[in-house]
Write a protein that binds this DNA or RNA. Sequence first.
DNA 1: ATACAAAATTGAACCGTTTCAATCATATGA
DNA 2: TCATATGATTGAAACGGTTCAATTTTGTAT
Lengths: 343, 343
Amino acid sequence: MKKITIDDVAKRAGVSKGTVSAVINAKNSVKPATREHILYFMKELNFHPKGVARNLKNGFQDKSIGLIIKDLGYHFYTSIAEGVREYAYSMGYSVVISSSHDDHEREKKISHFFSAKDIKGSIIAPTVNSKAEIEHLFRLRMINYPFVLLEDVKGIQANVVSIDNLKAIKKAVKYLINNGHKRIVHFAGPPQSSHTLERIRGFWHAFSESHLVFSKEMIISIGSDYEESFNKAKEYFIHKKHDEYPTAIVCFNDHQALAVMMALKELNICVPDDISIIGNDDIYYSQIYPIPLTTIKAPKREIGKRAAEILIRNIESPTLLPVEKVILDTEFIVRESTKTLIS
Amino acid sequence: MKKITIDDVAKRAGVSKGTVSAVINAKNSVKPATREHILYFMKELNFHPKGVARNLKNGFQDKSIGLIIKDLGYHFYTSIAEGVREYAYSMGYSVVISSSHDDHEREKKISHFFSAKDIKGSIIAPTVNSKAEIEHLFRLRMINYPFVLLEDVKGIQANVVSIDNLKAIKKAVKYLINNGHKRIVHFAGPPQSSHTLERIRGFWHAFSESHLVFSKEMIISIGSDYEESFNKAKEYFIHKKHDEYPTAIVCFNDHQALAVMMALKELNICVPDDISIIGNDDIYYSQIYPIPLTTIKAPKREIGKRAAEILIRNIESPTLLPVEKVILDTEFIVRESTKTLIS
DNA sequence: ATACAAAATTGAACCGTTTCAATCATATGA
DNA sequence: TCATATGATTGAAACGGTTCAATTTTGTAT
């Protein structure tokens, strides 16, 4: 299945390729009859002009940036994307997005794709499971391709804009501790997600910093899919004696927290009177829910904006710029799903 | 600010461009010392190899499709994207996404961008406000660029995968009518959205087909932003006498419906006992909400999948294929936010 | 019919890489 | 020291379009 080129069309239509080019570019120097004639053969041969060839000659000066996120359906990332978009548009850049699904291979492929398409730079939420999995970043580095990471990655010095997840969770857990909670538990997220581990670590740190005993029974893996979380949460409580219930649960994210609250409702366990719940992310619907959720709010749009800022600065600089690292603060928002145990 | 090419690097490093090329492509035929030397000058000149030139030579055989949606934060579109992704991946295609924000100019720019980058074909949720605004589709058509629309557009024969929104709303309204509701009202969406008009039309059709009188007071524009919908909904009821309350509200979408239910709650109006509510879209959180929402479920993933199917079939066909139009069925899901008035 | 201007068409050079046969450099063994 | 094998480097052609000065065709006025 040979590739059809402008020469094929020109030959078939009996004109020069200059004329075919003029038709493609809707120049009005072409006689209508000739245009029709050429269009006819373009159709017949099903010819698509290759952008790559036209851009080569034209200097391909489009302004565009890429964004590689982990999940399109996850509010956290789409909000970041919104921040990126806003800033990028204001600077005249287009944004293209692709999701890696937390899969390293995909991420590698997409980052390569973006650079190969002369997307001028990329913002990447990296999925890195092992030391070997930063090669693709080194390759981008080698070809001086501008990029900004949304999480710090060990082993490479690169631009990063992120939040201190560890500190955020610690703040939440310490809030519970300071309010008299003793039996605190963490409902962890999906095992393959990098966020899951980070949050478990934050939970653990809070305990050690408060000189409290941490045991691994405090971490219960219930995922973040609604059905799964709902069922596993119920199961957890059904197998527990009443006086062994935790007094507070730190959830993986708001989405999971909502599922947990539904499960508790079905079991007639009252939030926050029987159990306090803390979410993470501050998604939209957790405010709408009848018991507004206490949660950790990440400055999602701000993350996107700052990342885009750094990226575009690097793209537009004629020289290589020094690496920048930005860690943004999270906000712990106390709403109605938590209760103090201190009278 | 001159563009740096491989020639500049070669000259500066005192080697031929073939050698520089070998370094860029990590070929191991280059002596380590030479490699380092060349890398040094690549850095110094901040040289990025142009993908466009390498692709031209290489035959640019990446497999990729584009998706232009209207809103990244809107569940309806991200679910479609999920369907697209799933099918595309199974066929070895990458997916890149960009949001038009329901802005025709953006859409035009993005579609042009995708074709210019040799993204092999695109799925487009079109924003078309006037006859003149389909030019860009004609241009894609002229260059035989494969695309599939997610809404039918008057004036152009093109591949379409969509749902029958009109029919869907009609079914919902008729359900209410058949269950004895007399005072039914539609809370319309944001005026600039194409969906808004379509849903108003569906509402109107249901009345005329049921031989009931329709008046324009039945359409109340309250948007779909949470704050706005919440406030306007409250305002609507505050200015109404109790016995003038509608017995049922057909909402623009689930998101709006949730805002309306919150407003009603604050006014101590009971759903569904005082007023029935119907949403649209069947988003995730409307099942989680304490009063599960009666709604219209669109086969979102299926839409994405079918669109991707048609697109890839067209991309891979050596000849121009006839246009396909697919209209998928919606499902009316009765949950607990509606009540029959017939005893 | 002829001259001339305007319109339409041609074709060679160019864009920035990769490729690979040819050439040059280096190390090895006799 | 020379011949040879191997490793490293070169440079011209190729990729598929666009551009634009030069040329050909067409239309108009005489």
